[in-house]
């Protein structure tokens, strides 16, 4: 579905990505892991088109999208959910969600999808008339994910959906990400919460200093001593149980 070939990108003269290769196939959840400042968000921005490529190529469903503007990529089905703080605070919850469906013309289907988002995140239905600036951190995170769903994505990219949230809220959000994936949307999730991300995902990439360090199946990565050493601590069993309960 998505092919990233030797991508170099950054900001101004500062090069952050130094030759990233990535291949994401249809369906399932893929996670991109790495510490702060390793280029995770930069890669997402390069894929969604917010920053131009310095070198390399990105193709989506066989189509070269390297030169497309961000809004054109959204029309193709590549939707990036930004970090939680970036809802539109002066718009109501429902306005935010409707804005997510901006590229779509199928009014009836948009209504159905709106209901679906409310079913996924019932708290949003309760707060639909509220300005999104009044929501809690977890609620805003649900809102931006719901807004991403409204675009009817083929591939949904999530930028640290667990950041600064309570463990219980994270579990709820991850369970819903799983539901979205089961409905046939390919998901690329960037995380710092490595353990949870590897339990959720089927495949993982680990990025460091702008290049992909390791890649592989999630259950393999979680046992990998190098990964364990640099990222993981403690047991994975409790998280796993929490996810399965949902």
């Amino acid at each position: 579905m998505l092919q990233v070939n030797d991508v170099h990108a950054g900001y101004g003269n500062l090069k952050i990505l130094r030759g990233v290769d990535m291949s994401i196939s249809d369906g399932g959840i893929v996670t991109l892991l790495g510490g702060n400042g390793t280029g995770k968000s930069t890669l997402l921005k390069a894929i969604s088109g917010l920053i131009p490529l310095m070198k390399g190529q990105i193709t989506f469903d066989g189509l070269d999208i390297s030169k497309l503007k961000p809004h054109e990529r959204v029309r193709l089905g590549i939707v990036q959910v930004t970090q939680a703080k970036e809802a539109y605070p002066a718009m109501s919850v429902e306005e935010n969600l409707v804005l997510g469906a901006y590229t779509r013309k199928d009014r009836e289907a948009i209504k159905v999808d709106l209901e679906r988002v409310y079913d996924f995140f019932p708290v949003l239905r309760e707060r639909r008339k509220q300005m999104s600036g009044t929501l809690s951190g977890g609620e805003v995170q649900m809102l931006v994910i719901g807004r991403g769903m409204m675009a009817k994505p083929k591939m949904l990219m999530l930028d640290e959906p667990s950041a600064a949230l309570a463990p219980k809220v994270v579990l709820e959000i991850f369970a819903n990400i799983n539901r979205i994936a089961k409905s046939g949307v390919t998901i690329l999730i960037v995380e710092q919460n490595v353990r949870m991300a590897l339990i959720l995902a089927q495949y993982g990439y680990i990025i460091r200093d702008g290049i992909i360090l390791i890649e592989g199946n999630a259950d393999m990565l979680i046992k990998d001593p190098a990964v364990k050493e640099s990222f993981l601590g403690g047991s994975v069993a409790d998280v796993s149980r929490g996810l399965n309960k949902k």
Binding site: S48, H71, P89, A90, V98, L99, Y102
Partner: peptide, 19 residues
């Protein structure tokens, strides 16, 4: 709605598929 979105934050407006 798109104008308001652009006024608030251009990057997010882009990601909503707004030209």
């Amino acid at each position: 709605l798109a104008v308001r979105a652009v006024a608030h934050n251009k990057d997010i407006a882009y990601l909503m598929g707004i030209n």
